[in-house]
Design a protein around this nucleic acid. Structure first.
Lengths: 189, 189, 189, 189
DNA sequence: GATGAATGAGTCTTCATTCAT
DNA sequence: GATGAATGAAGACTCATTCAT
């Protein structure tokens, strides 16, 4: 079943969600289509499960960053780096995650199925914001977290498509955008 | 033919590019599939033409913003507003434009055409940056423009999905992000 | 209407009957599809009319060969030459005639529509045979004529496809086949 | 898969290659279109496979005729009978073979494959000629073989279309044509 | 009489899904 | 539980034919 998700990730990354065929995923996973459908009700369920796996993995990496001693009192720039760097690394290692993230915006019908990834990321961003800007109203906090995530999501495709040098420059730029956006908020708007 | 593009825009917005069927587009346009294919060689060509139309319309609206007297000497915040507001209005009025903008994994030919939309927006952003931060190297300028556009693109889906109130708040936030990102650049990094 | 048939002949020769589209024929004829359908009930009717025209033209050329004084008493080899040469010339000049002749064999449904060409050619061959071998029963005469025509038809594609030199050799061979076949018949089996 | 080819043969024989639809072939084969496409990449591939099957079967039957002891020293008329009779029987039993043999304006790929049928028959005819008229130059030998085959091909449709009695008469006539054509060649032109 | 845009049934082909083995 | 052949609905696209102008 992990085998199947690995295969799905490969195929999604290579051809996108819509053009990925379940038969190709099964073949890539070294199993029969029938077996694939024993694990997943349908193609959508595969994407959902994959998104779930990504959500879990990212949560783990995020927690790791925050269990580091002193994380809470880190300067904002450093904190951003500690969060962004593993996220980028994760997406570089798992290009299908980006595909799923984008697919959600492509068609309303696709949104629900990758919700977990979205929601999980959002919730973590909200935790961050709550810790750094405790004065914000829940609405504001949610909005700031959402904006942060959207900026990340917006830059992700370019970052993933870039070669190593340009990628580093873009990541630096992403951090700059977020730092400049969040710093005034941290200090009470 | 405008009829057909209108119908295509509706259908793309509703179900996304991949799930849009040419027969549905034709029906929505009140014509037969055969007629649709008299105007467009294939499904891709429909999207291409639609992207072209959007590129043209946006260029016009953007030029309008810049021909306004004094635009060049406007405070950055105001300038951003003058650019962002019509762009948002455009995307709210034309939700299919966002779909096309986001669709990364299209065929090369279509990508090239939606690339028009992309490129046109990018080039306009570069013009802006060049005017405001003449000291930047071409590479830096291109990167700043690209980042600006990516941030916009990243927030677009949420803005379009939001209700009117939340939408306004998100647009304000988008402007804030861009202002805080660009202001230091305008003043020499 | 001759215009239309000329165009049809071109198109049939270029792409074959099945792949020829009525719109292409109309365009080639410099008229609208509507006009084409004013002259011909449907695509089949075009082929029929074209076959009819070819039948007429060939009849004329055949009669010319036979009105030549002394034709009836010519040695068989010469007579064959006088019949075959203009027929080959005709088919070289009108490649669509060969297409129509072949199409009749490709699908039972196609046979009827080019019947005129077949029948006309057969009847002329029968006339020839009757003149040269008056002793044959009507059945035998019909069969000999039919065989003669089929041999001609069988070699026609290769003759038309060949370059000039090979073509001459093949035509010579065709005449040899027919001469050797018909000579004993002329002399009472 | 043999099922599918049988069905294709039926359909090709009934309506010709162009008018044969893959759905009809599938239905005739008692399978779904999807299954048909599991065996054959596309419609062309069906015809190719069928042509291949025919080529193989004919080669076998032809070899059988020639492995018969004393075949090489048979009088020419007998030899012709031994070759023609099974070929006619084959085409009577497999009317689609004639359709494929006659279809000249197929796509290059298909032509190449039906060419197999063509080529195989030609090569066998050449073998025959070489054995019987060793004095011929390769060019002449090829031409004689080609002419022989074309005569056969030319008479085939009429033979297949005829009722049993007329068919026998036509086959006899075919043999006569070939015998009279080839006999002088066998004896040094 | 001519036009040519419009039609829509029909074609090939794909692929998510099922089910007998 | 696994298999993978079979399914068949549905999609992109074509083209003979019609009909309002």
């Amino acid at each position: 079943m992990d085998q199947a998700l690995d295969a799905a990730a490969e195929v999604f990354a290579e051809v996108g969600y819509e053009k990925a065929t379940t038969n190709l995923i099964a073949a890539r996973a070294g199993m029969s289509p029938g077996s694939l459908y024993q694990f997943f009700r349908n193609k959508e369920a595969i994407a959902e499960a994959l998104a779930g796996r990504y959500a879990t993995e990212q949560a783990a990496s995020h927690d790791a960053a925050f269990l580091r001693p002193g994380a809470a009192s880190l300067p904002l720039g450093n904190l951003i780096g500690q969060v962004i760097d593993p996220m980028i690394a994760f997406h570089v290692a798992n290009p299908a995650a980006g595909i799923l993230l984008q697919s959600a915006d492509l068609s309303p019908a696709l949104a629900a199925r990758t919700g977990q990834l979205h929601e999980a990321a959002l919730r973590r961003a909200e935790g961050l914001v709550a810790a750094r800007a405790p004065g914000l109203s829940p609405d504001e906090r949610a909005r700031v977290a959402s904006v942060t995530f959207q900026v990340f999501k917006g830059m992700l495709p370019a970052i993933l498509a870039a070669g190593p040098d340009e990628r580093d420059a873009l990541v630096r730029e992403l951090k700059t955008v977020l730092l400049r956006y969040l710093e005034p908020i941290e200090h009470g708007h």
